[in-house]
C-alpha cells in the first residue's frame, strides 16, 4: 500500500473527471473526514485516513481490500474504473441517463443502452461523455459513455445505441472472481 505517484494520480483523476468533472475536488477535500487515495496490488483504493493508518499494521500479502476500490491499473499503465466506484460517481455525477424498467435487465447483463430503453437523459450532454446510468426510480445501475449528444439522440432509430456500456452492477455476480 502506497500513495499514488504523480502520473498515476493524473491517470486516475482524468478518468474520474470524465464522469464527475470538477467535482473531483470534493473527493480530495472532504469536509467531514479526510480521505486519501492508496495503491495496493495494482488497485486504487479511496479510504478515510483513519482507516488507512490502522490498516498499515496489516501485512501486504494479507491485506485484500480497504475502503472503496475505485479501479485498477492495467499492465500497460492505463487506469480502468471498476463498478465499485459507482457510489462516488453516482454521488457527484454531472451527466446522467435513466433507463426504463424494460431496459434494466439488458443493461445489467452487460449490454449497451438502446434508444428504445432510454427513459430520460440530462440536457446538453455532449458526445462521448461519461455518464452514470440510473433506473427510473433513481437507483444507480452502472456507467458508460454516450454515443451521441442529447440533441442527436432524438434523431436516432429505436435500436440504435445511446450509451456504450462500461460497467454495471451485474458484474458483482458475473466477474466476482476477477474483480477483486
Amino acid at each position: 500500500m502506497r500513495p499514488l505517484a504523480e502520473d498515476e494520480t493524473k491517470a486516475v483523476f482524468e478518468k474520474l473527471a470524465n464522469y464527475i468533472g470538477k467535482n473531483v475536488v470534493h473527493l480530495v477535500d472532504r469536509q467531514d473526514d479526510a480521505h486519501c487515495f492508496r495503491l495496493h496490488k495494482g488497485r486504487v483504493y479511496y479510504v478515510s485516513e483513519a482507516s488507512m493508518r490502522l490498516s498499515i499494521s496489516v501485512a501486504r500479502p494479507n491485506l485484500l481490500s480497504l475502503g472503496t476500490c475505485l479501479g485498477k491499473f492495467s499492465k500497460s499503465g492505463k487506469f480502468k474504473l471498476h463498478i465499485t466506484s459507482l457510489d462516488y460517481l453516482a454521488q457527484y455525477a454531472k451527466y446522467k441517463v435513466w433507463v426504463k424498467p424494460n431496459g434494466e435487465m439488458p443493461f445489467l447483463y452487460g449490454n449497451h443502452v438502446l434508444k428504445a430503453h432510454l427513459g430520460r437523459i440530462t440536457e446538453d450532454t455532449p458526445e462521448h461523455q461519461g455518464v452514470v446510468v440510473y433506473s427510473m426510480n433513481d437507483v444507480p445501475l452502472g456507467f458508460g459513455v454516450t454515443s451521441k449528444s442529447t440533441v442527436d439522440t432524438r434523431k436516432l432509430d429505436p435500436t440504435a445505441i445511446v450509451v456504450f456500456h462500461q460497467a454495471d452492477v451485474g458484474e458483482y455476480l458475473r466477474d466476482e472472481d476477477t474483480l477483486f
Binding site: S48, V58, S65, T68, D87, E176
Partner: peptide, 25 residues
C-alpha cells in the same frame, strides 16, 4: 480462507460499506 474473501470483498463493496478493511490471516 483466501478463496472465500473474494465473495466477502464483493459483498462489502456491493452493499456500500466504506469502513471495512478486508484481510486474510
Amino acid at each position: 480462507n483466501k478463496a472465500r474473501t473474494k465473495s466477502l470483498t464483493a459483498n462489502v463493496h456491493r452493499l456500500g460499506c466504506k469502513n471495512v478493511v478486508v484481510c486474510s490471516y
